[in-house]
């Protein structure tokens, strides 16, 4: 187990190294002069040379690369071209909003998607199945953006016109000191995120459950005289956990790297919003930082999923 883990971590580090190398060279060959972005249009040639020297941009490329990697390993991703703040602290400021969004969203979409999937699979072809399939179809075909706009209209705009505030229009409030305010602000983003993603999980659960419930060991469980609840949840659902965990790992990792659409719609100052601003501003250190953060979450979730596999499936132990 230890060796397995060490191997996975080493592999993850390698992936991140390759990723950083890739983004570094990608931005090095990209057009545009960083010094001009930092100094603005009115800078003189002397100022530009000074800035290049400060940023180390006048050094040969391999030196710049070694410098970049060396700092990155120590957690220093450089400074924003725009406001000269450390990239790391910029990202750290944005993480709470993204984390809040993802944490609540995950709980909500699992709580909605899995039961719908199970209900559908328990009565294939029946009324409840068609209901579940309808949900899946709607959830999958609605763009997040449209759903977000619609819920803002219904839950914020209409009540405001009627003269009261049902939900805020958006913005992020810290968890502390008042969790209720935090949750109130997060409610619409959560619901929007959860509804579309729940459809994916309902479909996955339905497919897996349909297959598992036809397995011989489910028949054995029934023949033992177990209650239907036990048969479905303890024996059926248990066997579908592995694919669910795989999907969940990938989804969480992607979202932690920035839930761009939802953060934009609800004005949440999260990592996704940061990324959008950075792209608009051509602020390369931040873009690199966000890309690396996303890569970090993906390799981390891969390691966690691998560990969960081992815990979940005795056959691979």
């Amino acid at each position: 187990m230890i060796r397995f883990l060490a191997g996975r971590v080493a592999f993850a580090a390698l992936i991140l190294l390759v990723l950083s190398t890739f983004v570094f060279f990608l931005f090095f060959v990209a057009p545009g002069d960083p010094a001009r972005m930092v100094a603005g249009d009115k800078a003189t040639e002397a100022q530009l040379i000074q800035i290049r020297a400060n940023l180390g941009l006048d050094r040969p490329i391999h030196e710049q690369y070694i410098n970049f990697i060396g700092k990155a390993v120590r957690g220093d991703l450089g400074f924003s071209y725009r406001n000269q703040q450390p990239v790391i602290s910029l990202i750290a400021n944005r993480l709470p909003a993204t984390l809040s969004l993802v944490a609540g969203g995950v709980i909500l979409w699992l709580a909605v998607g899995i039961p719908i999937g199970i209900m559908s699979a328990r009565h294939p072809g029946g009324f409840r199945d068609r209901l579940g399939q309808g949900f899946i179809l709607i959830g999958l075909s609605f763009p997040t953006f449209v759903l977000g706009m619609m819920s803002l209209y219904v839950f914020y705009f209409l009540p405001r016109q009627a003269g009261f505030t049902l939900f805020p229009a958006g913005g992020f409030k810290a968890f502390w000191p008042n969790p209720a305010i935090w949750a109130w602000h997060m409610a619409l983003p959560w619901a929007t995120l959860a509804l579309t993603t729940a459809a994916v999980y309902a479909r996955l659960t339905r497919g897996q459950m349909l297959e598992v419930m036809g397995e011989d060991y489910i028949r054995t469980a029934r023949a033992k005289g177990l209650s239907e609840t036990k048969v479905v949840f303890k024996h059926g659902l248990r066997a579908t956990l592995t694919p669910l965990v795989t999907q969940l790992g990938a989804d969480i990792a992607l979202l932690l790297g920035g839930a761009i659409v939802i953060e934009q719609v609800y004005g949440l100052q999260g990592v996704g919003a940061l990324a959008v601003q950075a792209v608009n501003n051509q602020d390369r250190p931040i873009i690199i930082g966000v890309v690396l953060l996303g890569g970090f979450f993906i390799v981390l979730s891969n390691i966690i999923v691998d560990i969960l596999y081992v815990l979940l499936d005795p056959r691979v132990r």
Partner: peptide, 16 residues
Amino acid sequence: GMIFQDPLSSLHPYYS
């Protein structure tokens, strides 16, 4: 009590 045809697939793989 019931004993099934295929002992390989009739036991749940994830429980002891």
